[in-house]
Design a protein around this nucleic acid. Structure first.
Lengths: 342, 342
DNA sequence: TGTTGCATCCAAAGCGGTTTGAAATCGATT
DNA sequence: AATCGATTTCAAACCGCTTTGGATGCAACA
């Protein structure tokens, strides 16, 4: 069942039927109802491929998921971010197209997406310092929203980010207020923009109180359980070990906890830990009482909002770039306590 | 730059250019080379939308990700499965379309995917007992491959699954061989097919040795850290607590470990734990020495293979359904030891 | 009565490819 | 020289929709 057939059954032209279904004004209300009814009765669904060719719009947005070629790691926040974005897309009848590519093919992927015309815009994931993709997307003229920011980029682009700097400076201050002065940072890889900002917030807060960040107490690694464990183990073995940890993710935090307990210490008593909690649906930070004290910001909500921004840009392209900065909450859990001299 | 323009620049008809580019035999080799060269020189990429309309193929496959409407949980294995499938798709120039829908809209989603014609096939995720989607997809004639199986389905459909039953019976036997007899099962939700099979393997192995599964030692919940923790805590508080746990996922396993340690016990000494490890990239089970003893099967590899099966079905539809059963390895880690009377 | 304007409807030309059926070219064969 | 078959090329139809640029009918107006 297609437009032409439906039209002939109704004794109307395809033009009129198309207009009736798409809500154009130049069609009699009674005929519109007839058409609507017939469409429903015959279970007519317009062929997406035809619509796309005719309108020139793809009605789809792309997410290019980079796989770090060295580590082959899929960032676990993608699942939730995409779930959030997906909600927005389906509400607006857009498709979501996923390209999983190793990071050295990313540029080609964007180029292809544009020239083959299968998306109207893209979300840029995991921005790095002075990220080249921003310039590229500008040049090829594909609308985009960055999840995160890219320090060093001078072009005015659209982004949605969590205030990582503020989140980590608040968390640091909180630990300082508890009397901790040997605070360790178990950060993500510091070519990632968010990791740089987090370190900035951490260092700032220390310096504000006249403390210098100790390089021995700073790690920058993949955010996995094992990496968190190793970093914490190394630091706890120092002559003057840290009494508190600031950790970039729930998963690393679990590794840190393992290292702490392995030394016979107890998290939340002997050693304090604050993590950043992306509020992943499958990794809830406890139920009523949070396990970890945490800076929390829902990555799923970020996905919803980033997708909305992108759709808006696609529909009204002349409105210029938008930015949105989300604040993280500081959630007090069971993993922090006043410093305790060992 | 489009076909027509490229053709006129070459002084050829669109027909010939199209054929030259698509490798049809009825075109002179020298002209083909001319065409190829010109296409490259002018950076010509055929418009996907036009190809799709003309050929009637979508060159895309859909993944419908159900969100359990009660719990709003995105299954964490999706990220890796999709990464694997994505590799296959990009190698074959297929797009991957993701629909994230709450599970009560799933049926409509499949229907739309078919009638609007934006995919050539789908992967069915997270099959349940006697899953209705199998019948539906048969009825609407959309090629599909199930990741997992659906006990009770009588139709011959294509699937790729891990031998969950065998994996869990082997793990149980391993614990029995270590002298454990109070073995607990912390399972996933048991309307999921894989969870049913795992319980089957577990019970079988016990009964084989003349032991009856104790209902108090069996939990069936969402596979989250907190759920694992709660289940284990409850069981450890029993009059006769378990000396070993069989746990359905790495994440639940972390919760189980937390419960164990909270009671002042040590995992791998006082209490043994075996988990199922999907070999997720961001949740590696240790490095050289695995943390957990585990039944392991890479969900990413499953994604790669399932995608290959689906593409094969799309290209050669008359070949009938295929099945593939992957075996899990049993990895010995630090979380198991001979039983120790408490 | 002849215009004018509005409300409706339609034919046809796109969108950018693929594919069918036929034509042109050319060497080989009778 | 005429015929044939194989090779190579092309014009035009087609995929299923949108959209432009009229048509048509009818009431209102001068």
């Amino acid at each position: 069942m297609n437009l032409k057939e439906l039209a002939s059954r109704l004794g109307l032209s395809p033009t009129t039927v198309s207009r009736a279904l798409n809500g154009y004004p130049e069609v009699n209300e009674t005929t519109r109802e007839r058409v609507m009814a017939a469409a429903k009765r015959h279970n007519y669904h317009p062929n997406t491929r035809a619509i796309r060719l005719a309108t020139g719009r793809a009605m789809a947005v792309g997410h290019v998921i980079p796989i770090a070629s060295r580590h082959e790691i899929v960032n676990p926040v993608f699942a939730d971010f995409i779930a959030g974005a997906g909600e927005t897309y389906s509400r607006n009848d857009y498709d979501m197209l996923l390209s999983v590519v190793s990071d050295d093919q990313e540029e080609d992927t964007y180029r292809n997406l544009k020239s083959k015309g299968n998306v109207d815009g893209v979300i840029v994931h995991a921005p790095r310092l002075d990220d080249q993709r921003i310039r590229l997307l500008f040049d090829i003229g594909l609308p985009f929203v960055v999840h995160g920011r890219s320090s060093g980029s001078t072009l005015p682009y659209s982004w949605l980010d969590v205030n990582n700097r503020r989140a980590f400076s608040r968390a640091t201050e909180f630990l300082l207020d508890l009397g901790h002065s040997r605070i360790a940072l178990v950060n993500g890889l510091e070519f990632m923009d968010f990791a740089i900002r987090r370190r900035g917030g951490f260092s700032d807060a220390l310096q504000q109180r006249g403390l210098a960040p100790d390089p021995d107490l700073m790690a920058s690694e993949e955010m996995t359980e094992v990496a968190g464990y190793r970093a914490a183990r190394r630091m706890l073995a120092l002559l003057v070990p840290p009494t508190a940890f600031l950790v970039s993710s729930m998963i690393s935090g679990m590794g840190v906890r393992r290292a702490i307990e392995e030394r016979g210490l107890a998290m939340g008593r002997d050693v304090s830990v604050i993590i950043h909690d992306d509020d992943l649906s499958y990794l809830k930070n406890g139920e009523d009482v949070p396990i970890f004290t945490a800076t929390r910001s829902s990555v799923r909500e970020a996905g919803r909002q980033a997708a909305e921004m992108l759709l808006h840009m696609i529909v009204s392209p002349r409105e210029g770039p938008q930015q949105r900065l989300l604040e993280a909450e500081l959630i007090i859990g069971q993993s922090t306590a006043p410093v305790r001299r060992l």
